[in-house]
Amino acid sequence: MRVWLKVAVLAAMMATGAHAAPLDAEHAALARFAGHWSVRQSYWTSPDKPPAVDRGEADFAMVLDGRHLRQDLRIDAKDKPFQGLGYIGYDTAAKTFFSTWMDVNFTGFIVAKGGYDAAAGRYTFVGQTPDFDHPGANIPLREVLTRQDDDHFTYDYYETRGGRETQAVRLEYARVR
Rank of each mutant, 00 (worst) to 15 (best):
E165M: 08
D117T: 06
R55D: 15
T45V: 11
S99L: 12
R161F: 05
R32E: 08
F97Q: 04
D65S: 13
G66S: 10
S38T: 14
A137Q: 15
V126Y: 08
D59H: 10
E57R: 08
T45C: 08
F82T: 02
G163M: 03
Q41D: 11
Y123W: 15
V39C: 04
L5A: 12
D91P: 03
D24E: 14
S42L: 13
E57S: 11
F125R: 03
R74S: 04
D131A: 01
G86F: 06
A112R: 02
D117K: 02
D103E: 02
V111K: 08
L145E: 07
T166Q: 01
H68R: 11
Y116F: 15
I110V: 15
T16V: 08
K113H: 13
R175V: 05
N138A: 12
A58L: 06
F153K: 04
T146H: 02
V7F: 11
H36M: 07
Q41R: 14
E159H: 05
Y90A: 07
D149A: 05
Q167I: 07
M14P: 05
G84H: 05
Y173Q: 05
V3Y: 13
M14T: 13
G56C: 03
V176G: 03
D72E: 13
Q128V: 06
A15P: 06
F132G: 12
Q41E: 15
P47E: 02
A119P: 04
A11I: 01
A118M: 02
Q167F: 03
K113N: 11
F153E: 00
L5D: 09
Y157M: 00
Y43C: 12
